[in-house]
Structures are given as structure tokens and as C-alpha cells.
């Protein structure tokens, strides 16, 4: 787009003002007397907004959580950056990746304790890419968690039933 847009809250406000009672010349970009990084003044053009932003019920777009950077020097290696995650997911994914025979290296770190992101470094043996390895690991883990949830609920129900039986019997 090449130019700053209003934030979503401002966007809905401005969108509700369409159609303007102003002349087209005022709306055009060239006539803007002032343009900052974040907004144009006095009014942004309608084309400055994405369609979903123009709707009244526009929710702010979900920010990107995961990014992959291939390593420039080591083949079949790369770093995943996951925003808003910590040791909970980092260690879980690392251990699952290490269980994969095709993964040669897997490690995670939190670059800074005050930044809520983790880096996961993965190197594979070349049979598949780090992206494939990570997606297989997440797939396995989510299936395992699903199974764990079922088993746990089953066992809790059984334990409750046993306790009831005991109470009822005595």
C-alpha cells in the first residue's frame, strides 16, 4: 500500500462517515495538507482501507504468531520464531522434535526474558525440511493431547463412579 493507514478503531469511525459531504479534491491524497506515519489528515481515502476494515464489526486482524527463517550457512536448518509463547511450548516442541529420527538438531531459547517470544532451531537430515518436521511434531502432540484429554476424563469419571459406589455401599 505504501502509506500509513488508520488503526482499526479509527478506521471504523472514519468508515461510518462515508459518503463524505466533502469535495473529491479534499479527499485525494495530493491535497492532504499533512501526512504522518500513522494517519492521513484530514481524511483518508476509501481505498486506503481493506474491505473488512470498512465493516462496522471489524475485528482487529490477528497478529502473526509464527515465522520461519532458513539458516544461510547450514543446509536443512532454520529458526522458527513463535510470538507470545514460552518454555511451555518451547520445551514441549523441542522434545517432540528430538524424538523424530529425521531431526538432527532441535533446540529452543527465549532470547530475552522480557520479550514474549521463543526461537526454535531445527536441523534435519535432508529427508524432509524443518517445516515438515515441526508440523509433524505439532500434529503428533495435538493428537497426544487429545488422547490424554480423553483418557483423563475417562479416569476421572471412573474414579467418581468408584467413590459413589463406595459411599452408596457403606
Amino acid at each position: 500500500m505504501g502509506r500509513g493507514r488508520l488503526g482499526s478503531a479509527g478506521a471504523t469511525e472514519a468508515a461510518s462517515l462515508f459518503p463524505f459531504p466533502f469535495s473529491k479534491a479534499l479527499l485525494s491524497r495530493s491535497s492532504s495538507p499533512f501526512e504522518s506515519q500513522w494517519c492521513t489528515y484530514p481524511f483518508p481515502k476509501e481505498s486506503d482501507f481493506r474491505k473488512e476494515e470498512l465493516s462496522i464489526a471489524a475485528a482487529p486482524p490477528r497478529p502473526r504468531r509464527l515465522a520461519y527463517t532458513p539458516d544461510t550457512k547450514i543446509p536443512h536448518a532454520g529458526t522458527f520464531e513463535i510470538i507470545k509463547e514460552d518454555h511451555t511450548l518451547g520445551n514441549l516442541l523441542r522434545m517432540q522434535l528430538l524424538a523424530d529420527r529425521q531431526v538432527r538438531f532441535a533446540g529452543y531459547m527465549q532470547p530475552h526474558p522480557l520479550e514474549n517470544k521463543i526461537h526454535i532451531k531445527v536441523q534435519t537430515n535432508g529427508d524432509n525440511t524443518p517445516v515438515d518436521a515441526l508440523s509433524a511434531a505439532t500434529e503428533d502432540l495435538s493428537q497426544e493431547m487429545e488422547g490424554l484429554r480423553e483418557v483423563f476424563q475417562e479416569q476421572v469419571a471412573a474414579a467418581k463412579h468408584a467413590a459413589e459406589q463406595e459411599q452408596f455401599g457403606s
Binding site: 522434545m95 517432540q96 524424538a99 523424530d100 529420527r101 509433524a136 511434531a137 500434529e139 503428533d140 493428537q143 497426544e144 488422547g147 490424554l148 483418557v151 483423563f152 479416569q155 476421572v156 471412573a158 474414579a159 467418581k160 467413590a163
Partner: peptide, 27 residues
């Protein structure tokens, strides 16, 4: 799914505000 595990759960103690269980066959 080559590395799929099937975790097992065994409830040791279960109360309204407390649960203790043995988790096995996982990491």
C-alpha cells in the same frame, strides 16, 4: 505419525478441589 505416544492416566486421589494422578507413557 511416527512418534505418537498414548499417555496413560491413573487417578490416585480425587476431591472437589484436588486431584493427584500418575501420568505414564509420555515425556
Amino acid at each position: 505419525m511416527p512418534n505418537l505416544r498414548a499417555p496413560q492416566v491413573e487417578i490416585v486421589d480425587l476431591r472437589e478441589d484436588f486431584v493427584e494422578f500418575v501420568l505414564s507413557n509420555t515425556d
